[in-house]
């Protein structure tokens, strides 16, 4: 009975909008539907975020909250050795991680999507195969690959030596020049299925007439891809780029499994997630809560800000397509 009465009310108060007939229900009805999601969201997302912000403005001695510290924790993070250096080094590694992933994982993902789209044979099987590594936790993936790459017992170097490529049998994860690229490759190995699926879906949504029209106009295969397919993939590229950005700047599990909490060797794979982990949990000084909260806030603000900018940029690009 209650529901029936509620349903009749908005009809009376229906608002006519410019284009079509749209009934805007009363705010109380809207609130009832929004409330459960809002409560869950507040309790598990907004509250922790706000409390990290709150913690970052106080001085801490262990778990005891001392006086208001203003921006001291932020200043410490940017000026106390070695965090002042590690913060920028970690940031640069995250940026490299992102660029490397865009170049390798997402480009290869697009290539796979195009090949599967054009030659449909075994599509189902290959799509499933490329996405299987999703099912494994990054920690496990990292551990397995570090076993494979182990310089003493690992099969990869044994294989290289067996085929006479001794000079290629490097300590992959123990060399400051190769460690980060290896981590980026392993990450791409795990997630390449994601851009592939996104691009496959977007390709399927492009009407075949466009390509036919391009061919009639005498466009080569490349021109057809460059001038027709790629622009129409903009929405998918936007989503993939932003999600890659968020994932890469929050990277932790895989790097931790392959390079430990210090970003071995010699910090050459150190990323912001590891720095946070060390400041918050490993080094455990009495200042830990304040400083790690400050770092968490900085990371959130940066990732959130860039994601917003990137999303609005891609929106504008999309609008130009229409």
């Amino acid at each position: 009975m209650v529901q029936a009465r509620e349903l009749t009310v908005p009809r009376r108060r229906a608002v006519r909008t410019g284009t079509g007939r749209r009934y805007v229900p009363r705010w109380r009805v809207l609130a009832v539907f929004l409330l459960p999601a809002f409560l869950l969201y507040s309790a598990f997302i907004v509250y922790p975020l706000v409390s990290a912000l709150d913690y970052s403005f106080f001085e801490w001695r262990g778990i005891r909250q001392m006086g208001f510290a203003g921006l001291d924790n932020y200043r410490d993070l940017l000026s106390v050795y070695p965090y002042d250096q590690q913060l920028w080094r970690a940031f640069a590694h995250n940026a490299l991680f992102f660029v490397g992933t865009m170049l390798i994982q997402n480009t290869v993902g697009l290539l796979f999507a195009l090949l599967l789209f054009r030659y449909g044979r075994g599509k189902r099987f290959l799509q499933a195969a490329f996405t299987t590594p999703y099912l494994v936790d990054p920690l496990v993936v990292g551990y397995l690959w570090s076993l494979l790459l182990n310089p003493t017992f690992g099969p990869i170097n044994s294989l290289l030596e067996a085929v006479g490529l001794d000079s290629w049998a490097l300590p992959w994860l123990g060399d400051t020049r190769t460690a980060l690229p290896i981590v980026i490759l392993v990450n791409a190995w795990q997630w390449v299925g994601f851009p592939m699926l996104m691009f496959s879906a977007a390709l399927a949504g492009i009407p075949a007439e466009y390509h036919e029209a391009a061919r009639v106009d005498g466009a080569s295969a490349w021109q057809s891809f460059r001038r027709v397919t790629l622009p129409l993939l903009t929405p998918a590229i936007g989503v993939v780029s932003v999600l890659t950005f968020i994932g890469n700047f929050n990277a932790f599990g895989l790097v931790y499994a392959m390079a430990g909490s210090t970003g071995s060797p010699a910090g050459s794979t150190d990323v912001l997630g590891l720095l946070f982990y060390r400041v918050a949990f490993v080094e455990g000084g009495v200042e830990a809560i304040g400083r790690s909260s400050a770092l968490a806030v900085l990371m959130f603000v940066f990732i959130f800000g860039v994601s917003l900018l990137a999303t609005s940029y891609f929106r504008r690009r999309e609008r130009r397509l229409v």
Partner: peptide, 19 residues
């Protein structure tokens, strides 16, 4: 007793020395 603690800096730097 404080951040950064002595052996945290030490281990990172020694690993650097070994590379």
């Amino acid at each position: 007793y404080g951040q950064p603690n002595g052996d945290a800096v030490f281990r990172d730097e020694v690993q650097k020395m070994l590379t």
